[in-house]
Each structure stands twice: as C-alpha cells, then as structure tokens.
Computed example of a mutant assay.
Amino acid sequence: MKKLILCFVAACSTWMVSAQVKTNVTYSGNPVFPGWYADPEGVVFNKQYWIYPTYSAAYEKQVFFDAFSSPDLVHWTKHARIMDTAAVKWAKYAIWAPAIIEKDKKYYLFFGANDIQNDQQNGGIGVAVANKPQGPFKDLLGKPLVDKFYNKAQPIDQFVFQDSDKQYYLIYGGWQHCNIAKLKNDFTGFIPYEDGQTFHEITPEHYVEGPCMFKKDGKYYFMWSEGGWTGPDYCVAYAIGDSPAGPFKRIGKILQQDPAIANGAGHHSVIHLPKENKWYIIYHRRPVTETAANSRETCIEELQFDENGLIKPVTITKQGVPAHRIQ
C-alpha cells in the first residue's frame, strides 16, 4: 500500500510539473490583436512594447491612428485615436504608416497623409508631437514636412532612423523610389548634404515601398517591401551597407506568403532588445480566407541571423512568439 501511495504521489508530481510547463508557455498568437491593421511600427518605450499601425480601411475612413501597448507581447491594450485629422488640419484622409521616436521626453509621430499623386496636391509626410506614447498627438509644423516628389519618390511610408552619432534620418518613398535625408534636431526640416542636396536616392533593386533600417555589428541593414500591396506577392527583402546611404545591393527575400496561412506578408518594422539580444519582426498579412484589399492583420515573428550576419528567412505562423517581458 505504501508503495502504491508513493507511486501515486510521484505520478501526481510529474503531472503537476508537466501542467505547469504547459500553462507557462504562452504565445502572442497571430494576429497579435483584433481588427484590420497594416504597416505596423513596433517600438519599445519604458519597457513596454508598442505597435503603431495604419487603420486598414477605405481611404476616406483612414482619418485616425490607434496604438497598442503590451508588457509581454501577449496582453495588448488598445489606445484609440491617438491622432486624427482634427489635430492635423491639412491631412484629410489616407493617414498611413506611422513611424515614432522618443526624444527629450517627447514623442514624435511621422505619418503620410492624402496619398498625393503630384506636386500640385496638398499632402505628403507630416510630423506630430505628444508628451506620452499614447498621445494625444498634435501637428508640429502646421504643414507637411515633405510635400513634393523628390527623385520621383511619392512622399509616403516614412521611417526614422537614428545612427550611432545621434544623427536622425528620414527614409521614405513609394512608387519604387526611396530617399534618405538628414533631419534637423528639432524635426522641423532637413540638413543638406555636402553636395547641397537634401534628398539622396538609395533605391535598391525591386524596391516598391515600406523602408526600414537598423544597425547591427557596425553594418546597416536596409529592408523594404516588394510586389503589390493588394496581392499575394507582397513581401520583404533586404540589403546590407556600410552607411545609412548605402550603396545597397539586394540580398534577397526574408518574409513572404505561406499559402496555408496567409498571403501579402509585408510592410514591416523591427524591434531589438539589446540586453537579451532578441529581435522581432512586426508585419501585416492577409488571411487566406480574405480577398478584400484592406483585410490585413498585424503579426509578429522572431528575426534571426546566421553566423555571417545574414537574415534567415522568416517562417510565418499562427502562434506568433513566446511571451517575453523586457528585462
């Protein structure tokens, strides 16, 4: 009888350990939060994950931004209407692709508006400011920061990159052209390059839109979206250069559709946790059950590198990534 009891206790202990292990492995799931959202900007503020996406809907309904925050990549809080067209008088619709940075205890949100098609139309890339990451954000300039087609680049899909020397750069462009420009320290304009030009083109092969940049081991990783945003071939490719301005030679795709899970996987951003040396890619995709162009959801996967520093192809999943609190 004593032996039977001991066996029962041992069995219960084994079950309890197994159950504990199972219940502690929690994943973000994909999408990470409900609703149609695209072009996600992932960032860390005050040991919290934040995602700032485009509200994925018809142009005339894209008049605001929502944001989402999480302590662990699993539990997300929605912050509704952190900015809308009431706070930016020149922006009427097609509020797209937010990019955000923190500087001197203020938060600067860069965005595209109005989807201008030529230099005569009003719109382009703007910047708003707030005292908190959840806003409310107010127009900084009262006008667009970039309102013309320089080097044939449509003024959309802006990304802000800070180099090791603290210089901020605006990297942007649609219509298969990408520009880089040095931002003034207060983000009210630009610092010309030594050749007198403000915008240098850095367009790599097959570039369409959605630029993103980060620095790793002294190298500059430049990423972008290829293909058509409404189709299954939308994807992410990258290059590596020795400076923010390149030159950048395309290496290959690292994120694309899986016909069993979703298509149109693209327009991404990257989060790096230096202490843990963890990397995440945040992107949007279209479920295979959906055909509408704006049926896009925000997802997250781990980003990994090989021994040569090349980015490994990303496998898109339904489970997402394990829960992780920032150290």
Rank of each mutant, 00 (worst) to 15 (best):
111 F>C: 06
119 D>F: 09
169 Y>L: 02
323 A>T: 13
269 S>V: 03
277 N>G: 02
254 I>G: 02
5 I>G: 04
109 L>A: 07
120 Q>C: 00
221 Y>I: 13
308 N>M: 04
293 A>H: 09
291 T>M: 09
230 T>S: 14
91 A>H: 02
82 I>Q: 01
223 M>S: 15
158 Q>Y: 00
157 D>K: 06
187 F>I: 05
194 E>I: 08
100 I>V: 15
61 K>W: 05
148 K>T: 08
302 E>L: 14
162 Q>W: 02
133 P>N: 10
221 Y>R: 01
236 V>E: 05
205 E>P: 01
131 N>R: 11
45 F>S: 10
114 N>Y: 06
33 F>W: 03
63 V>W: 00
6 L>K: 13
273 L>P: 07
247 P>E: 04
6 L>F: 12
224 W>D: 04
235 C>S: 15
268 H>M: 13
141 L>G: 04
126 G>A: 09
76 W>I: 09
192 P>Q: 07
74 V>Q: 03
167 Q>C: 05
188 T>I: 00
319 Q>N: 14
219 K>F: 07
229 W>F: 15
300 I>P: 11
261 I>N: 07
31 P>S: 10
225 S>H: 06
170 L>K: 01
173 G>A: 06
264 G>S: 15
246 G>P: 01
199 F>G: 11
274 P>T: 06
15 W>P: 00
178 C>K: 01
310 L>K: 11
36 W>R: 09
326 I>A: 08
29 G>L: 07
281 I>D: 06
314 V>L: 11
100 I>H: 00
24 N>M: 13
200 H>R: 08
321 V>W: 06
327 Q>L: 11
316 I>M: 02
8 F>S: 13
224 W>C: 04
278 K>I: 09
11 A>T: 15
150 Y>M: 02
95 I>W: 00
294 N>W: 14
149 F>K: 05
253 K>D: 05
309 G>H: 13
320 G>Y: 05
59 Y>E: 09
260 A>R: 14
195 D>K: 02
288 V>E: 10
278 K>N: 09
175 W>Q: 14
173 G>N: 10
316 I>G: 05
228 G>Q: 09
207 Y>I: 11
103 K>A: 06
65 F>T: 06
84 D>H: 07
299 C>S: 15
308 N>A: 12
302 E>Y: 06
88 V>I: 15
